[in-house]
């Protein structure tokens, strides 16, 4: 195997990073081992479970199936990039409240899948939610409470948006 290095640059969770890697490193390993962002998990290494899900260039991606150099120039969001100023993202809040978390290993990927889904479709129905998280396996919850969480977050985000609009009008 090669130890040859190459340098790549990308933005991860809003921060610009320049990092040395190899052509044989998976993006998942770069994120976990080099950047120590261990919220991104490995469950199968073959794109079948969704535990390693990240958002790359505004798309949901299994980071175990991306070579690190393929992320050169990319914009990446991992679970650590959600929420602002110590406040949780409404999706994270909803997961906690509805009991959507059991062992928690699928949770980071699942939350990101939900995030992407709600960005693209702010009012999903149950079937659309199921499809949106269909690449993320969960062995504990039976999915029901995860779907409830996404529903709840969708409602809150809509409400939040309306309130913000209302404020703008008042101003």
């Amino acid at each position: 195997m090669s130890t040859h290095k190459l340098t790549i640059e990308f933005i991860i969770n809003g921060q610009k990073r320049k990092i040395e890697t190899t052509p044989f490193t998976r993006l998942l390993d770069l994120i976990r081992d080099d950047l120590h962002l261990t919220g991104t998990k490995e469950g199968c290494g073959k794109g079948e479970c969704g535990a390693c899900t990240i958002i790359m260039n505004h798309q949901l991606v299994a980071s175990c199936l991306v070579l690190a150099p393929q992320a050169d120039g990319a914009e990446i969001i991992t679970i650590e990039g959600l929420g602002e100023k110590g406040k949780l993202d409404p999706i994270q809040e909803a997961f906690i409240e509805t009991g959507a978390v059991q062992c928690g290993f699928c949770t980071p990927g699942m939350v990101l899948a939900a995030k992407k889904l709600l960005e693209e479709n702010p009012h999903p129905n149950i079937e659309e939610i199921k499809r949106g998280i269909s690449g993320n396996l969960c062995r504990c919850t039976g999915y029901k409470k995860i779907i409830e969480a996404i529903n709840l977050a969708a409602k809150r985000l809509t409400q939040q948006l309306e309130e913000e609009k209302g404020k703008e009008k008042n101003v």
């Binding site: 199968c44 079948e48 479970c49 199921k130 993320n136 969960c138 029901k144």
Partner: peptide, 16 residues
Amino acid sequence: NLTDYLIPTAMDMPQF
């Protein structure tokens, strides 16, 4: 592997 050992996905979920 999880390609051929299949566990239910969200799409297989019934109403509870």
